[in-house]
Design a protein around this nucleic acid. Sequence first.
DNA 1: ATACTTTCCTGGGCGC
DNA 2: TGCGCCCAGGAAAGTA
Length: 283
Amino acid sequence: MPELPEVETVRKGLITLIGGSTITGVDVFWNRMITPPFSSEKFQEVLVGEQIHTIERRGKYLIFLLDHWAMVSHLRMEGKFEVTPTDTPYKKHTHVVFHLADNRDLRYLDVRKFGRFSLIPIEKRDEFEAIKKLGPEPTASFFKVEAFQDSLSRTGRAIKTTILDQEVVAGVGNIYADESLFQAAINPMKPANRLNQAEAERLHEAIIDVIARAVEAGGSTIRTYKNTLGEAGKFQVALKVYGKTNQACPRCGTAIEKTKVGQRGTHYCPQCQGPISDYQKKE
DNA sequence: ATACTTTCCTGGGCGC
DNA sequence: TGCGCCCAGGAAAGTA
């Protein structure tokens, strides 16, 4: 699932491949992928002739800056982009195609069809609601420990659920939430408002560190698809708990356990992070 | 207001 | 082999 590091890797790849390109036509094969207020017909119509000047990222959102529009793309679970010559046959699950002026296509593929595209006039790009609500980017310059501690103090939700909340900090998904909590040695089920100051500081530090290292490595590639942008990441080899169920904890050797926290598969070390039984509600 | 539940989707894994 | 069933999960919408 693409989280911030994977989306950032896709962004860099796209800039290199299609920065400066002009869209000559758009095909949408799954209408729900285009969010209101724009219909897929309108979406296809207004993008013709638009040049892709640059591509930015905020949290897990990609923002294509065109002449008159900001096109916002969220890959959700399985979204991918590829750039291919126009005469290449469509792969399965190709749902949106941007034809470019140089006989190439920018194609969007998504097995589960969860990804979304939105348009907003370029002069209103800062008013895009979902992005406006996002918390700080998880880097030292934006993500401040005081504000983080304040967010934690306001909720009794599980700490993992809280750091997955994009309004608390932007860009953390299931993989990096588990990795950050392991690095900070904090139980994923611990209520956010019960973290002490040292724990909050460790977690803040861990999120910044894990995300930065993953960005550096080009993200994590869980499944490999050739010729698809952002799929050559190397961080999966650095993962310590995610997907490591029943394997030895790299710190203490205890078997990594998998449970559910807020409907999400959650991996943790019951020794380093403590048993979840301390926090489980009675059934 | 907050917090929990449901919805969207399909491929893959499982049991029989 | 093949069928039916269930599950994964980010974010938005719905409900208590």
